[in-house]
Design a protein around this nucleic acid. Structure first.
Lengths: 71, 71
DNA sequence: AATTATTTATCGTATTGCGATAAATAATTG
DNA sequence: CAATTATTTATCGCAATACGATAAATAATT
């Protein structure tokens, strides 16, 4: 069995009291695509997008991407 | 100015006393491509590759990907 | 020197991000 | 409740990219 990567963008959004709409504007990708990202439906991510996410949320990569081991 | 993402695979490899060759075999991508990844030349990364990296190095995403703010 | 490990580069193909858009659903507000 | 706003989901198309395969250059080790 394989582990998984959890997107914790929700958590950071709550902490920053920021909406998905605002985040998408700050990052510069459409709301629809941000939703895909946020809900773990993306199969890859551009480094440039990761950078803008960290920037917009003022956080570390580890705050939004978490590896979850399979038991 | 924009921040950047640093790949810290080297650090984890040293900690695990593992060679790039072995890591590439474990992750299941070619040595050449692992080198690109490791040295921050990749512009995107598949989530599946990230998972296998965390698995092989027994670490968190934050251990290998670090956001570095621009000053 | 010889061997081994790593990096860099090129080409081709399959995958994917992401924009644009629209529709469905959920949450909020008067 | 109805109206509005926010979010999610889906589809299409194109440009960007991962990654394999391969080869060559460079670095490190013995």
């Amino acid at each position: 069995m394989e582990g998984n990567i959890i997107f914790n963008i929700d958590v950071m959004l709550a902490k920053r009291k920021m909406s998905v709409t605002e985040l998408s504007e700050r990052v510069g990708i459409t709301l629809a695509n941000m939703s895909v990202l946020k809900n773990g439906k993306a199969k890859a991510i551009k480094i440039s997008t990761l950078i803008k996410l960290c920037e917009a949320l003022d956080c570390q990569v580890g705050d939004i991407l978490e590896y979850k081991k399979a038991e």
